[in-house]
C-alpha cells in the first residue's frame, strides 16, 4: 500500500482510471468508519464529529446536509485529505487516508481528489487555462484532449487566456469544477459549490458538474444546506451535532 502511494502511477486506481470505469464490484470507493474529530479552542477541545460512518460507491453521489456546525464540512475535509481525523478510519479508493503523513495526504489530494469550494478558490495569478491544468500538471497527468473537452463542455471556450478576476462567479465555479475534474479524480468533493451563485447559475453549474461526473465515473460528495439541490444527488445524509441523524 505504502509502496503504491510512493509511485502513484502504478496504483490500481490508476489502471482502473485508464480503463475509464470504476471497479464497482470491489470495495466501495469511500468507507468512513466511526470517524471522530474535535477542534482545540481556548475553552478546550470541542468535538465536531462524534463517530460517523458512511460509504460511497464509485459513480454515485451523496449530499451531506445539516445545520451550520453540524460537522458536514469537517467530514468533507477529512475525506478529502485536507485535515486529519482524531480517530476512526477513512478508506478512499482502497487507500487508508487516516494516519497518513502531510506529504501522503498532499499526494492523495493531488492525484485522487478533486475539490470545489464555495469561494471557487482559483489561483488568481494563473489564467483560466493555467487554473484548469494546474492540478493535473501537479499530478503529472495532464491530458490535453480531456482539457479541451472540459473547456468545451463547461462553456469556457474563448476564456482560456483570461484571469479569474475577469470572470463572473458562475464562470469561475465552472473553471473550479474543470480544474477538479481535469485529473480524472476518483472522488470529487464540493463544499456548497453553488453557495455564492444565484439559483439559476447554481443549477446550471450543478447540472454541468453532474453530467461530467457521470462521464468520469468518479464519486461525488457534496456539502449543501439546500434540500432542493441535495435531492438531485443519489443519496442524502444529514448530520446533526457530529453524528449522522438521517440517511
Amino acid at each position: 500500500m505504502r509502496a503504491s502511494l510512493e509511485s502513484p502511477k502504478a496504483t490500481p486506481a490508476e489502471q482502473s482510471q485508464a480503463a475509464g470505469r470504476a471497479p464497482s464490484d470491489a470495495l466501495p470507493l469511500l468507507r468512513v468508519l466511526n470517524v471522530r474529530k474535535s477542534y482545540a479552542t481556548p475553552q478546550g477541545p470541542v468535538p465536531v464529529l462524534k463517530g460517523v460512518d458512511l460509504t460511497l460507491e464509485a459513480g454515485s453521489s451523496l449530499a451531506l446536509l445539516g445545520e451550520s456546525g453540524s460537522g458536514k464540512s469537517t467530514l468533507l475535509h477529512l475525506v478529502g485529505g485536507l485535515d486529519e481525523a482524531d480517530g476512526g478510519e477513512i478508506i478512499l479508493d482502497g487507500v487508508r487516508v487516516t494516519g497518513q503523513s502531510d506529504a501522503e495526504r498532499a499526494a492523495l489530494r493531488r492525484e485522487r481528489v478533486g475539490i470545489v469550494f464555495q469561494q471557487f478558490n482559483l489561483v488568481p495569478s494563473l489564467t483560466v487555462a493555467g487554473n484548469l491544468a494546474f492540478q493535473a500538471r501537479l499530478a503529472g497527468r495532464f491530458d490535453a484532449d480531456w482539457q479541451s473537452e472540459l473547456v468545451r463542455r463547461l462553456g469556457l471556450a474563448g476564456l482560456e487566456a483570461r484571469y479569474p478576476e475577469q470572470l463572473s462567479g458562475g464562470q469561475q465555479q465552472r473553471v473550479a469544477i474543470g480544474r477538479a475534474l481535469a485529473i480524472r479524480p476518483r472522488l470529487l468533493i464540493a463544499d456548497e459549490p453553488t453557495g455564492n451563485l444565484d439559483e439559476a447559475t447554481g443549477d446550471e453549474v450543478l447540472d454541468l458538474a453532474l453530467d461530467l461526473i457521470r462521464r468520469t465515473g468518479c464519486g461525488f460528495l457534496m456539502v449543501t444546506h439546500s434540500t432542493r439541490l441535495a435531492a438531485r444527488l443519489n443519496r442524502q445524509v444529514t448530520l446533526a451535532s457530529g453524528v449522522i441523524a438521517a440517511s
Binding site: D102, R110, L138
Partner: peptide, 10 residues
C-alpha cells in the same frame, strides 16, 4: 487553494 490541490505546506 494550492495547498488544497496537493502541495505540502513545507
Amino acid at each position: 487553494p494550492v495547498w488544497a490541490l496537493g502541495v505540502t505546506r513545507r
